[in-house]
Amino acid sequence: MEFKNKVVLVTGGSSGLGFAIAKAFALQGATLIITGRRQPQLDEAVSRLGGNSSAVCTDISNTTDLAELFSHMQAVHGHIDVLIANAGIGVIEPLGAITEAGFDKVFTTNVKGTIFTVQGALPLMSKVSSIVIIGSTASINPGPGLSVYGATKAALRALVRSWILDIKGSGVRINLLSPGPVNTQSLRDVLGENAQEVIDGLSEKSTLGRIGEAREIGQAALFLASDASSYVNGTELFADGGASQI
């Protein structure tokens, strides 16, 4: 699972899971490009990633931004070996309190943004390229207040199942990596003052007795993107300690 001389694009790579995934590729020698919406955070992430890494400020919900991103990729790198479509957002809005603004924000980023990220990357990919889309176990078990977010992640599963037929014979593989709860600062921020109590409850649901660590999701992404999974296509890999299987 080495990626020396491979061009790897990670969207939403400046923090959280995206940064952990980007770090995993950087450690394997990738020519790494990360995106995000905030330049200062991107600059900090690149300095921490080191190696052959760079950043392009991009909002994936904006098709003009995406067009500029792929023009940059074409001009600077000429191709893309691996796309990690990680960028996404979530809001907690229970039924009865779902807002049109919240719905539009989550679907525009998570679904529309992912669609046009993948579609924009494809012309720069070859027969041995790989796409890994970051989903979530919320697609099958969203929990209270996460119905809209879970629906976007379920939509990604449907997209992948159709897309592998659309590009049949191209050699490009598309897989979905769906993490369960992962110990990141963003998760703790969302959970607020009850974070540890909720994390303890989530840990009990896992057959491993804990929630995931960000580096573990990075390792799973490496596998799906690498030649080690060369006959794996259109699958959804759950990385959740077994919670979704019971």
Score class of each variant (00 low, 15 high):
residue 118 V to N: 08
residue 176 L to D: 09
residue 162 S to V: 06
residue 151 A to H: 06
residue 163 W to V: 02
residue 138 A to T: 06
residue 182 V to P: 07
residue 191 L to W: 02
residue 218 G to I: 01
residue 199 I to A: 12
residue 171 G to T: 07
residue 101 A to K: 15
residue 124 L to G: 05
residue 140 I to T: 14
residue 113 G to N: 07
residue 224 L to D: 10
residue 235 T to G: 09
residue 155 A to R: 05
residue 111 V to M: 12
residue 140 I to N: 11
residue 126 S to H: 14
residue 124 L to A: 05
residue 154 A to E: 09
residue 161 R to W: 01
residue 119 Q to Y: 12
residue 219 Q to A: 14
residue 197 E to W: 00
residue 141 N to P: 00
residue 126 S to A: 13
residue 193 E to P: 03
residue 106 V to D: 13
residue 234 G to H: 08
residue 225 A to D: 05
residue 197 E to Q: 14
residue 202 L to W: 07
residue 137 T to I: 10
residue 125 M to A: 05
residue 179 P to N: 14
residue 116 F to D: 10
residue 178 S to P: 01
residue 124 L to K: 04
residue 190 V to K: 03
residue 213 E to Y: 04
residue 180 G to S: 04
residue 164 I to M: 08
residue 203 S to W: 00
residue 237 L to A: 11
residue 175 N to A: 07
residue 162 S to Q: 13
residue 131 I to T: 04
residue 105 K to C: 01
residue 115 I to Q: 13
residue 121 A to Q: 05
residue 200 D to E: 14
residue 149 Y to F: 12
residue 227 D to I: 00
residue 181 P to I: 01
residue 149 Y to D: 08
residue 150 G to P: 06
residue 140 I to V: 15
residue 145 G to D: 02
residue 156 L to N: 09
residue 238 F to M: 15
residue 122 L to F: 13
residue 102 G to W: 04
residue 202 L to Y: 08
residue 222 L to D: 10
residue 144 P to T: 04
residue 151 A to Y: 08
residue 226 S to M: 13
residue 101 A to D: 15
residue 115 I to L: 15
residue 197 E to Y: 02
residue 136 S to H: 06
residue 130 S to K: 01
residue 212 G to W: 06
residue 155 A to E: 04
residue 120 G to R: 11
residue 206 S to G: 13
residue 150 G to K: 07
residue 116 F to V: 03
residue 179 P to G: 13
residue 211 I to M: 03
residue 115 I to Y: 15
residue 177 L to D: 08
residue 235 T to S: 15
residue 131 I to Y: 12
residue 158 A to G: 12
residue 175 N to Q: 11
residue 191 L to Q: 09
residue 237 L to D: 09
residue 168 K to S: 12
residue 189 D to P: 01
residue 229 S to D: 07
residue 237 L to E: 11
residue 216 E to C: 04
residue 103 F to P: 01
residue 201 G to S: 10
residue 214 A to P: 05
residue 170 S to I: 05
residue 139 S to N: 12
residue 144 P to F: 01
residue 229 S to Y: 03
residue 145 G to F: 03
residue 232 V to Y: 09
residue 107 F to D: 05
residue 145 G to P: 02
residue 201 G to D: 08
residue 179 P to S: 13
residue 178 S to M: 03
